[in-house]
Amino acid sequence: MEFFLKLGEVGRYLPMLLRASLVNLELLGALLAIGFLIGTLVALLQVYGGRLLGTGAYLYEWVFRSIPALVLLFLFYYGPARFGVSIKPFLAASLALGFRSSAYQSQIFRGAIQAIPTGQMVAARALGMSRIRAIRHVILPQAFRLAIPGWSNEFSSVVKDTTLAYAVTLNEIMRHAKIVMDNQYDLAMATFIVVALVFLVFTYSGNALLGQVERRFRIPGLQMPGTQGAML
């Protein structure tokens, strides 16, 4: 019916929308990187950090998991102004969503680290490795492999969350879609359906990519306990 005519009309705006979607992808990359680095650190502190640091790490995780993404975005965007610093939307969004993702990623990494049998660390220490060496050469290589499935879930989740950054004036795809809608109200449905389809493509390509990564780094016997072929 006429819906398909509308879709055709939206085609005019497609290049602009696709370009805007690149901003989403950039934000995705930034926030995942921040989340990865901090998430790994937090997980290590939780497992190896001792009472003070460990508790602090757990607290950090709880706070950044319990506050809604939108609230975090606002805090990181409007917060610095209160202290006399101005911050660009992209940076604010990367930090807000990055810290949030670090909380979820830390949970994934912690689970993976704890799935590794204690004997691995003991054997590494018996060779004369310091704790840090052992973590670097024995624990983390295994933990990151074990974490891939869980991490894929986080990835899928977070791809879609990049749209939330529109609320702090980031010029990503949803903001542009809204502009199209403001120009031509009758194109609203068609435009947002197109945006939805773009994200479907992102989600599925991302998952396929991560599937490849998992296969590339797979090691026989190294799987989460209880899954097929696991030696753990």
Binding site: I116, P117, G119, Q120, V122, A123, A124, A126, V138, P141, Q142, R145, I219, G221, L222, M231, L232
Partner: peptide, 11 residues
Amino acid sequence: FVFQDFNLFTH
């Protein structure tokens, strides 16, 4: 040190 359950590095 040689362990009862080997503890070879799985990865």
